[in-house]
Simulated assay, not measured.
Amino acid sequence: MVISNKRLARAHVEKLKEGYSAFTESPEVARYIEKELDSLGFSVHIDRTPYGFWYIPLRDET
């Protein structure tokens, strides 16, 4: 079964919006995630490692 990188990125963004962290090994999926987050104006901490990319949602301090 083949899963689209864009679909996988959207699934990760949905997890982030729910307050969960997301991880991907693929630079292509990471680019899609970051593009989607930029368009939404959603703030996350991105930890780029040699093994992949961690996305951690930032809490609102209001």
Rank of each mutant, 00 (worst) to 15 (best):
G41W: 06
P27T: 04
L37W: 04
E28D: 12
Y55P: 00
F42Q: 01
S26G: 05
S21A: 15
A9C: 05
V13E: 06
K6T: 06
W54A: 05
R7N: 06
P50V: 03
V29H: 06
P57E: 11
D60F: 00
A30T: 07
L8F: 03
L16K: 01
A30M: 11
S43M: 11
V29G: 03
P57N: 08
E14R: 13
I3F: 07
D60G: 14
S43Y: 05
S4R: 11
L16Y: 04
N5A: 05
D38Y: 08
M1E: 10
F23A: 02
K35I: 10
V13S: 07
K17D: 01
K35P: 02
V13N: 08
E36D: 14
F53P: 03
P50T: 04
R7H: 07
L40R: 08
E18D: 10
E25K: 08
Y55L: 01
I56V: 12
K15A: 13
E36N: 03
L37E: 01
M1F: 06
A22V: 00
M1A: 11
G19R: 06
E28C: 00
F53S: 03
G41T: 06
E61H: 05
I46D: 00
V13K: 01
L40Y: 10
V44F: 02
D47M: 06
S26N: 11
D60Q: 08
Y32R: 02
L40F: 10
Y20A: 12
H45A: 15
D38R: 15
T24R: 09
A30K: 12
T49R: 14
